[in-house]
């Protein structure tokens, strides 16, 4: 197996006014080609920051990040855009489909930004991609004519159309019901089995369970790096499958501000 992702001492500090927020304080890990990894952690843990770095949407304050043999850490912005286009397929919680375009056009969009492909070839590849996620029959539908699960499948087809090195899913089931979530995770598992490297960011243990390896982030540091099988076997008091406290649940849906002192005491 070769290395797909190599992160070394990644830190990310945000400057808000006079206050420095250390979202990541030095995280190192490797992800091999073909792995299925879940990144978990409570709100404010640095999990989203890490996802932004892995997704090349942001660059680390310090440390090095290598994706598929490319050193990303200090790339210029246009090159970062090109890396996102070629190496990464994004799946977002809110699907982010363009409402006025058909499923087919939505899926073909990343190929337009790659350049060099004529329009009919782009649509052909988009159609193949849609068939792969089981939506070959609904290519001409607009997003609002599709169910949530179908919309997320379109988003996955869009992520796959560039034949990326890495599929990066950010809470992909966050807007779906349980049954649809299971179907969608089944699809991601299938894709992983066929060789795709999948990184999943989630706070739901039921979703994380589909991955084979768990990276748990807390307070900007990598707390655990274990196979998911072990993570749930051990009766760790911090095990993510334990029901969250009401305060934690409220914070997940954004009703409470993140208070650092609370987290320290917890």
């Amino acid at each position: 197996m070769s290395i797909m992702i190599s992160a070394r001492d990644l830190t990310r500090t945000y400057q808000t006014g006079d206050i420095e927020v250390h979202a990541l304080r030095g995280v190192s890990f490797d992800i091999q080609r073909g792995e299925f990894v879940a990144i978990m952690g409570p709100s404010g843990s640095g999990k989203s920051t890490l996802m932004n770095l892995i997704g090349c949407l942001d660059t680390p304050t310090s440390g090095s990040y290598t994706l598929d043999g490319l050193e990303i850490d200090q790339l210029e912005k246009p090159l970062l855009a090109a890396v996102r286009n070629r190496k990464i397929g994004f799946v977002f919680q809110q699907f982010h489909l363009l409402a006025r375009n058909s499923a087919l056009e939505n899926v073909a969009l990343p190929l337009a930004y790659r350049g060099g492909l004529p329009a009919d070839e782009r649509l052909e590849r988009a159609a193949e991609s849609l068939e792969r996620v089981g939506l070959g029959e609904r290519m001409d539908h607009k997003p609002q004519e599709l169910s949530g699960g179908q919309q997320q499948r379109v988003a996955i087809a869009r992520a796959l159309v560039t034949r990326p090195a890495l599929l990066l899913a950010d809470e992909p089931t966050g807007a779906l019901d349980t049954r649809t979530s299971e179907e969608l995770m089944g699809l991601l598992t299938d894709l992983n089995r066929s060789g795709m490297t999948v990184v999943l960011v989630t706070h739901e243990p039921d979703v994380a369970r589909y991955a084979r390896r768990l990276l748990e982030i807390r307070d900007g540091l990598l707390q655990r790096d274990v196979p998911t099988a072990e993570a749930w076997a051990a009766q760790d008091p911090h095990a993510p499958h334990l029901p969250a406290s009401p305060v934690e649940r409220a914070r997940r849906v954004g009703r409470l501000p993140v208070a650092r002192h609370w987290r320290r005491s917890a």
């Binding site: 997704g55 949407l57 912005k77 246009p78 855009a81 090109a82 996102r84 286009n85 070629r86 994004f90 977002f92 809110q94 982010h96 363009l98 969009l109 990343p110 930004y113 790659r114 869009r158 560039t162």
Partner: peptide, 16 residues
């Protein structure tokens, strides 16, 4: 705004 964010995530450069 979200459409612009999406386009950038999918590989649109600032110039695009």
């Amino acid at each position: 705004t979200r459409e612009i964010g999406l386009r950038k995530a999918l590989g649109a450069r600032e110039g695009d």
